[in-house]
Simulated scan of single mutants.
Amino acid sequence: MNKSATQFCPVPQEQQPTHEYQQLQDSWFFSWATLEPTDYIKKLLGVGFATSIIAAPIAAASFLPTKYPVKFFLSSIGGMTFLTALVLFQLYFGWSYVCDRLYQERISYEESGWYDGQVWLKPESMLTRDRLIVGYEVQPILDRIKKTFVFLLCIVIVGSIIWFV
């Protein structure tokens, strides 16, 4: 391939995978996954606290805190975990989408609307660059989110064991 062929990219700027990746990094919400571990945990604890404001009254309506304190506490934690998991799903799906777009050899894009979709084959140099971004930048983010899901799942399992004991 000649040099001009590797420099030309017919995909509109906003639909190029590297641009989508940069937008996620710059996004208020999606950038949470790129933060240092302590800051990431603080954000999730903030979400957990905010969701407990919703979950605790619902749990209190089901289990009076004075009469069933353990069930109230466990159902509050369960609701908080569920709502936090929804936030994590959004984070995961956003980063997973960009990961797939970066990793694929072909980029599907739209020139002006849904009816004129096109597919462009990435040049080898662009594919290599994008796959390096996946391996060194995006995959660790996805792994972090997966580990957080495992942690939340452990909370649910321990809570379930306590509930039934």
Score class of each variant (00 low, 15 high):
N2D: 15
K3H: 12
T6Q: 15
T6F: 13
Q7N: 13
F8M: 06
P10D: 05
V11R: 09
P12W: 09
Q13S: 10
E14L: 14
Q15P: 12
Q16D: 12
Q16W: 10
P17W: 08
E20K: 15
Y21D: 04
Y21C: 05
Q22H: 11
Q23K: 14
L24D: 06
L24F: 08
Q25Y: 03
Q25D: 02
W28H: 12
F29H: 05
F30A: 11
A33V: 03
A33S: 13
A33T: 07
P37T: 10
Y40A: 02
Y40V: 07
I41M: 04
I41F: 03
L44A: 03
L45I: 07
G46C: 02
G48H: 09
G48N: 07
A50R: 06
T51Y: 14
I53N: 07
I53A: 11
I53L: 14
I54V: 15
I54T: 15
A55L: 14
P57A: 09
P57I: 08
A60E: 04
F63R: 04
F63T: 09
F63P: 05
L64H: 14
T66R: 07
K67H: 08
Y68P: 01
P69E: 09
K71V: 06
F72N: 06
F72P: 04
F73P: 02
S75R: 04
S76Y: 04
I77Y: 04
G78K: 05
G79N: 05
M80R: 00
T81E: 10
T81C: 13
T84L: 14
T84V: 12
T84D: 10
L86D: 08
F89I: 15
F89D: 15
Q90V: 11
W95P: 02
Y97F: 08
V98W: 03
D100Y: 13
R101F: 03
L102K: 07
L102Y: 09
Q104T: 12
E105H: 05
R106W: 06
I107L: 03
S108W: 02
E110F: 10
E110V: 09
E111L: 06
S112K: 05
W114F: 15
W114L: 15
W114I: 15
W114R: 15
Y115D: 14
D116E: 15
Q118E: 13
Q118A: 12
V119R: 05
L121K: 05
K122H: 01
E124T: 09
S125N: 07
S125T: 11
M126Q: 15
L127T: 01
I133G: 01
I133T: 11
V134E: 00
V134T: 01
Y136W: 03
Y136H: 03
E137G: 03
E137Y: 03
V138K: 00
V138H: 02
Q139P: 08
Q139F: 12
P140D: 12
P140K: 10
I141Q: 01
I141K: 01
R144G: 07
R144V: 08
R144W: 08
K146W: 09
T148Q: 13
F149R: 11
L152C: 07
C154L: 11
I155K: 00
V158M: 06
V158Y: 03
G159F: 00
G159D: 00
S160R: 00
S160M: 04
S160L: 06
I161Q: 02
